[in-house]
């Protein structure tokens, strides 16, 4: 089993003059589920984007390590699976075409069997050849999970994972979290109590609001 960790050191983020959070020091490691909590506008999405190195912090740093070796930022995308409400897939492609393109752009061979397995798991297999512009918001949300899991990443970052999902969809997400937590590092950013109840450690962003 690989040992993956994310170390956050003195993280500060400002948007203009507005402080989002100040001096966050935290460590995340595999085989655990972490929660990021806070009310709307508290910076949960910003924090997970910084964790994934999608945006830069104003100050401080984020270090990803796999088996104690630092992972270069350039290669980080192959280690992270990300689900978020502001993540969009290509509407003009079918679910399968989207997944095929993503695998190839990552430089990996498209694993048709694993893709079908995930599509079946998220109840999308029957519609895999439909353009996703015809999907409901719940179906699009489920497809984002397939997108996040297809390359078998060590880190799963779920920002508001159950938004737009019905009860069956939510149960599937919780089942995935419980199943994957043994060997993956899972981070959930949410203000839903049920989502956070699966987390062993919770980082409350409201505590980092003062200068």
């Amino acid at each position: 089993m690989t040992n993956y960790s994310i170390e956050v050191e003195n993280l500060v983020k400002f948007f203009g003059r507005r402080l989002i959070f100040n001096e966050i020091n935290f460590s995340f490691s595999s085989s655990h589920v972490y929660g990021i909590s806070g009310p709307n506008g508290s910076g949960k999405s910003t924090f997970v984007k910084i964790l994934s190195c999608l945006i830069s912090p104003t100050k401080g740093k984020v270090i990803h390590k796999k088996d104690e070796l630092i992972i270069e930022e350039e290669k980080l995308h192959n280690h992270i699976g990300f689900v978020s409400p502001y993540l969009f897939l290509y509407d003009e492609f079918t679910a399968e075409e989207n997944l095929k393109h993503f695998s190839k752009i990552r430089g990996k061979i498209f694993d048709n069997e694993f893709s079908n397995y995930l599509l079946q798991e998220f109840n999308l297999y029957e519609r895999k050849n439909d353009q996703i512009k015809g999907y409901s918001s719940g179906m699009k949300q489920r497809l984002k999970f397939v997108f996040a899991l297809l390359h078998n990443p060590e880190v799963l970052i779920f920002d508001e994972p159950t938004s737009n999902l019905d009860n069956k969809g939510k149960e599937k997400v919780y089942e995935i979290i419980l199943r994957m937590k043994k060997d993956k590092l899972i981070i959930i950013a949410s203000n839903e109590d049920t989502d956070l109840s699966y987390c062993e450690n919770i980082l409350e962003l409201e505590k980092y609001k003062t200068k």
Binding site: S52, E74, F102, I105
Partner: peptide, 20 residues
């Protein structure tokens, strides 16, 4: 405009995206 910039950031390095 389609909001897929984040998706690209999650699947490829900046140099790959620029080259493509």
């Amino acid at each position: 405009e389609r909001g897929t910039t984040l998706t690209l950031q999650l699947i490829a390095s900046p140099s790959t995206i620029f080259s493509g």
